[in-house]
Amino acid sequence: MSRWPRRAQYLLLIVWAVFTAMPFLWAITTSFKDVNAVQGHVTYVPWLEFEPTLEAWRQIFGGAGGVNLVGPFVNSLIITVCASAIAIVLGALAAYGLSRFRYRIGPAKNKDIVFFFVSQRIMPPVVLVIPFFFLLQMPGLLDTRLGLIIVTVALLLPIAVWVMVDFFDNIPREIDEMAMLEGCTPMQAFLRAIVPNSAPGLTVAAMFCAVFGWNDFFFAFRLTFTQVQTLPQAVVALNSSIPPWWTLSAAALFGIIPLLVLAVLVERYLSKGNLAGAVR
């Protein structure tokens, strides 16, 4: 290969890197600005172009004139972690069944059932939110963490099932057949032979669940009011007639911390080669 296509590749990659990094740079600098520094032309270099201040950060951690985001952050964390964990456990069990045993509900076979699961995500959220509202209202779970966890599980389950069915389909049946020949019940075969070999699939499913769960705004917005606020809700609540760009930026950066940690963990795990060639 001649040098030019390679240089063109690098050039393109640099352009793309700048393009994706810009919003972060913008958010980071903005979070250290005050009202005056945001107005006027765009500035990037602290101390030279603008006087940095920690005011925005103080505000999101409960400083005067701000909204404390720690409570909503904790709420989001609890809801996402619990809902993801439950969705992964239930999803893996459901997916294993759908991958290994034949079901028939009326005319629907396994494939149709999997599609039914996935189709829950195709529906516009507005369609789901009204029944969810009434379902949570009856047992008094509106505006509670538990209620939101239940709803989030319902939203994440299709993703978990979908990812895991595909993953289990690619694990040779001989793995569980062998376990059963050796004396395991189907459940034991799943736990002792399949799960230890499924770390890659479970990781991917968990990642999807965590991202979707963490970013949910709509359902939290409609199903909680005052007691339980999630981070996306609280961030939106910061808005006023004049958008406080500095606090919004700080809140956004604060909000991506868990996903950043997750990304680093998964990346570490990936680079150890654990996601490749699970079984044989």
């Binding site: 040779p172 001989e174 062998m178 070999n197 044989r280």
Partner: peptide
């Protein structure tokens, strides 16, 4: 049973 391909737990 022994299968055509190795069935072992990595």
């Amino acid at each position: 049973q022994v299968f055509q391909f190795p069935v072992i737990y990595r």
